[in-house]
Amino acid sequence: MSQAKIAIIMGSKSDLVIMQDAADVLKELGVEYEITVVSAHRTPDRMFSYARAAADRGIKVIIAGAGGAAHLPGMVASLTHLPVIGVPVKSSNSIDGWDSILSILQMPNGIPVATVALNAAKNAGILAAQILSTADEHIVANLKAFKEELANKVIESAKEMES
């Protein structure tokens, strides 16, 4: 049985509509992942234990999505040596997503969080796979095929428009 290398966590189940994109692209790239809800504000003890135990469970990268005050990615990054990718989520109580973006982006020196665009969980999944690919040729091959398919779609679109 394969073991998850990437953890996808979110502050609320309502974020799943966005965070599912990370899971979908990781599945497409053949990368094992786990996915769950870990709230920095409502379940801080769960967040502490989850972040501290992730590496021991074999996790190599954590993708953390959060809306509003969006403390989850930064707090998790403060608790682990693993790379954390933050996904700012435009939530129902958001200030047009800017609160989430700035909360994740403005981390203090020493606690880095890679930050993707608002609601860009797919990019977080791709970035996590690229991080893993530095030590996994199978992921490299899958990423190359994925990028080739992206290029082919653009070329096909151009051909359709030009004819």
Rank of each mutant, 00 (worst) to 15 (best):
G58E: 04
I131A: 11
I111S: 02
E160G: 00
A23W: 07
N123W: 00
T36F: 11
S157F: 14
I63R: 10
I18Q: 01
L105I: 11
V61F: 05
G74I: 00
G110Y: 08
I131R: 13
N109H: 14
A114M: 13
Y33T: 02
P44G: 06
P112C: 05
I63T: 09
A66S: 14
R42H: 14
S163R: 03
L150W: 09
V89D: 04
A77V: 01
D96P: 01
M19T: 12
A55V: 01
K144L: 11
K159D: 06
T36I: 05
K144R: 04
G30V: 15
P88R: 04
K27R: 05
E162D: 09
W98C: 07
K147R: 11
N142A: 07
R52Y: 09
K153R: 15
V38A: 08
W98D: 10
V61I: 04
K27P: 03
M1H: 03
M10P: 05
Q20H: 11
K90I: 09
D45Y: 05
G11S: 10
I104D: 03
A54T: 06
K90D: 13
D136E: 12
T80A: 02
D24V: 11
P73G: 12
A141E: 10
V25M: 06
S100E: 10
T80I: 08
V84P: 01
L127V: 14
A51L: 10
M161S: 10
V113N: 01
L72M: 00
E162W: 04
S49T: 11
E137A: 15
A124F: 13
L150H: 15
V87C: 06
K159R: 15
M47L: 15
E32W: 01
H81Q: 06
S92W: 13
A53L: 07
